[in-house]
Design a protein around this nucleic acid. Sequence first.
DNA 1: CGGCTGGAAATGTCTATACATTTGTCGACA
DNA 2: TGTCGACAAATGTATAGACATTTCCAGCCG
Lengths: 244, 244
Amino acid sequence: MTQKRPLYQAIRSAIEGRIMSGALRPGDRIPFEHELMAEYGCSRMTVNKALSALASAGLIARQRRRGSFVTRPRIHMAALQIPDIREEIEKRGHVYGLRLVGRSVHPANSAEAGLLRLPAGRELLALRCVHLADRRPYAVEARLINLAAVPEAREADFAATPPGSWLLAHVPWTEAEHRITAAAAGDAAGLLDLGADRPCLVLERWTWREAEAITYVRTVFDGESFDLTARFASQGAREQVFGG
Amino acid sequence: MTQKRPLYQAIRSAIEGRIMSGALRPGDRIPFEHELMAEYGCSRMTVNKALSALASAGLIARQRRRGSFVTRPRIHMAALQIPDIREEIEKRGHVYGLRLVGRSVHPANSAEAGLLRLPAGRELLALRCVHLADRRPYAVEARLINLAAVPEAREADFAATPPGSWLLAHVPWTEAEHRITAAAAGDAAGLLDLGADRPCLVLERWTWREAEAITYVRTVFDGESFDLTARFASQGAREQVFGG
DNA sequence: CGGCTGGAAATGTCTATACATTTGTCGACA
DNA sequence: TGTCGACAAATGTATAGACATTTCCAGCCG
C-alpha cells in the first residue's frame, strides 16, 4: 500500500488528514519533528519540509521551542478570481461588445488625484465605456490611467480593445487593491438601462507598479444579474469561479 | 547592506524582483540551480528551497532537464479574507451585540433542501439574527444548519454565541463556497433600520464537510456602510484587509 | 521572595553529498 | 537516412550533521 509519492508529501497529507477529520483540533500540538522522524524513520529535513509546507499553507503555526500547533480556522479566505470581462463574456458563449462613451486627456483634478493617490496636475487618460454581452449592457466602466506610467495608452484604440485587456497585456503590475461594495445604479443607470435606484455591485480596482499608480477602475454591474462566487477547499488547492 | 534574513529568502526575492520589474519576462528561463549556487556561493539545497517556494507561489514553473521558466498567465486573483463578524466588529473597537430574532427546528422544505443541496425532509435548525455594533444593526444573518451533520447545534445557546463563531469552533469543514451579490434590503430592511429599496451587499456561504452539507448562511450588510476589500501583490505572498 | 543566569529543548537555516527521475542530445548502427 | 539507445544535464528527493535562534524552566544568588 506504500504510495509511490515522496515521503514528505505522505507525511504532510497524513497530518492534513488528521486535521481535516477532526482528530487534531485547532490549538492542538502536532508531534515534534524528532517524534515524526522516529515515526517515519526519516531525517529531520524531510519532516521539516512537510511541516514547512503545512505552515505556509496556513494549516499549522510553528513556534520555536514550543512546537507546531493546528491553527484556528477563524478566518475564511476565499480566492476570488477576477478575470478579464471580455474573456468572461465570451467564455459564456455570448458575443462581446464594447461602447466607448467618453475619452479625455487632462491634468488630474483633486478628486482624481485622490483616487490614484498622486499629486494633482499629473496627466491622465480618462475613459468611460460600456461592456456589452449580446448587444445588451453588462457593465459600465470608468477608468483613469496615469499617462506618466503608461505613455503608450495615449495612442491605444480603446474603441476596439477593452482597456482592461489592453493594460493586462501591456503593463506588468506588482500590487493591486480591490474593493467590493453595493450601491444604487445612479449615474450608470442610463447606460445599463436600469432604474436609478436599482442595487448594483460595484467593483473598484487600483493597480500599482512598485510605488507608481497605473490605473484606477470602477465597474458597475447590475446586482440582479451578476454575482461573484468563489468555491474553495478549506486549505490547500483552490478552484475558483467567477459568475455573471 | 546585507540583510539579516535567510539566504534562501534573499535569493527568492532577488528573482522575484527581476520578474516583477520586467527584467525577466514570462517564458524566460531563470538561471539553473548550479549557476545560482555559484552566484551566491551556497549549496544546491538552499537554491532549491528558494526556487521551490517560487514554484509553489506560481511565479515559475520547473521542468526537469530543461530548467525553470517564468510563468505566463497573470490572472487577477484577489484573496478575500472573510473573518468572523464578531471579531471584525471588536477589532474595530466597537461593542459587539447579538439579537436572535428567530429559531426553529423543522424538516427541510423544498426551498431549504435546494439551498443545502440535501433531500427534503432532513431536520434543520433555522436561525435568524442581527449582529449589532455599538447597539446599532450591522448585519442580518439567516442560517440553516443540517442537524444530522451537527447534532450538538440543537443544544447550543445562539443567543450568547454567534452561530458562525460557534460553528467555526466546533465543526471542521473541508469545502466552502461564497457568493457575493447586491440586492435591495427587502425583508432585512426593518431589522437593519433601512429603507426597503436601500442597496445591500449580500454574502452567502455554503459549507461542507466531505460530501455532507453543514450550513448555509445569507448575511445582508448595508451597502453604504460596508465594503469588502482585498489588497495583494501580483503573485506570491498576499496581505488582506476586510472592511466595514 | 524575586530577579538573574545558564542550560536545554524545539524550530530555523545551511552544508555536502548521494541517488532517482526525466528528458534532450548525439552517436552507433542498420 | 532514419531509428534506437546510451549518456549527460537538469530537477526531485533524501540523508546526517552542524550551528543559530528563541524561549521555557530550573536553580542560584541576593
